[in-house]
């Protein structure tokens, strides 16, 4: 298909769980970015799946940093490469805990300073690495080890926080649409200045569904409208194909919620709240694309 084999930058094999979306996302991100890339990785699943020192399964340079520091370290690295006259891609690759909760001030600072880098947040909607504790990104009603009755608060809208910085390129993607993701990574790296991509990463042990359903879950999230795929260049919004299709004919939201063990015992009222929220988000995006918002 795309000749991915020669551009495989992860050696067989990481210690990621069977059916992990994170390693799938990383495969396609690195294939799109090419060999002249440096990854900055804070504490998250990806810092664990690399392998045990002195061995690693990543063929490109990786800098493992403290939880809160990924965007700050990437800023320094980007400035250093610029001073040396190099065009190396700097990619900060962090989980939702390291972006939405712990790393948000470093991210906000880097976006404000117009650092030339790409920040990718892969969002499995909890602290997966430490055993699925609740994060700011966990959706309403989802069970985690710290919210055994289901989370009582809504998911933090990180994309609108990032959009408020008015950056040259931001996008959302999903692991079930790898070609869409690769296209967005290429666009983001071609952009001068800060770029941000938020990727939904379904997690089989954390979301409690069988490992083979990873791609199906990602597709359902987009088809039901819970997750929207779009790009934003400053104030201009372009909605991606799969979400456009979901706007015309959405799949019932129950099809996404029912197969997941983390939503066990969810009340019909909570499902209605999630549905209304996602409908509101899609309406707002459509209005922003038209420019009437």
């Amino acid at each position: 298909m795309s000749g991915l084999q020669e551009t495989e930058y992860i050696l067989k094999c990481t210690s990621a769980c069977a059916g992990c979306s994170t390693s799938l996302i990383l495969r396609h991100v690195l294939a799109a970015a090419g060999p002249d890339t440096v990854l900055v990785i804070p504490a998250c699943c990806t810092s664990v799946i690399q392998g045990v020192y002195p061995k690693t399964s990543f063929r490109i340079p990786v800098y493992n940093v403290a939880f809160a520091a990924s965007a700050a370290v990437a800023s320094g690295m980007s400035a250093a490469f610029e001073a040396m006259g190099k065009k190396t891609n700097v990619i900060a690759y962090a989980g939702d805990g390291g972006t939405v909760d712990i790393g948000i001030q470093a991210l906000s600072g880097a976006l404000e300073r117009e650092t030339n880098f790409l920040y990718i947040c892969y969002d499995n909607e909890a602290y997966g690495n430490t055993g699925m504790q609740r994060s700011g990104s966990t959706p309403l009603g989802a069970r985690t080890t710290t919210t055994p009755e289901g989370k009582g608060h809504k998911k933090k809208d990180l994309d609108r926080i990032v959009a408020a910085h008015s950056i040259p390129y931001m996008a959302t993607a999903c692991s079930a649409y790898p070609k869409d993701l690769a296209g967005k990574v290429e666009k983001a790296l071609a952009t001068k200045g800060p770029a941000f991509i938020h990727v939904l990463a379904p997690c089989p042990p954390g979301w409690r569904y069988p490992a083979e359903k990873t791609i199906e879950m990602g597709k359902l999230a987009v088809k039901t409208g819970v997750w929207a795929l779009y790009e934003r260049m400053y104030e201009t919004v372009v909605i991606s194909g799969p979400t456009k299709a979901a706007m015309i004919k959405p799949t019932p939201i129950e099809e996404y919620i029912k197969p997941q063990g983390r939503f066990k015992g969810i009340t019909p009222e909570t499902i209605t709240t999630i549905r209304l929220d996602s409908e509101r988000m899609l309406r707002r995006l459509a209005a922003e694309e038209e420019g009437s918002c």
């Binding site: 690399q50 045990v52 061995k55 690693t56």
Partner: peptide, 18 residues
């Protein structure tokens, strides 16, 4: 410096998990 070297099977033969 704590530098890791890229090698095949850095996490062992994961086929045994199957």
């Amino acid at each position: 410096l704590a530098l890791s070297t890229p090698v095949m099977g850095a996490c062992g033969k994961t086929g045994t998990w199957r």
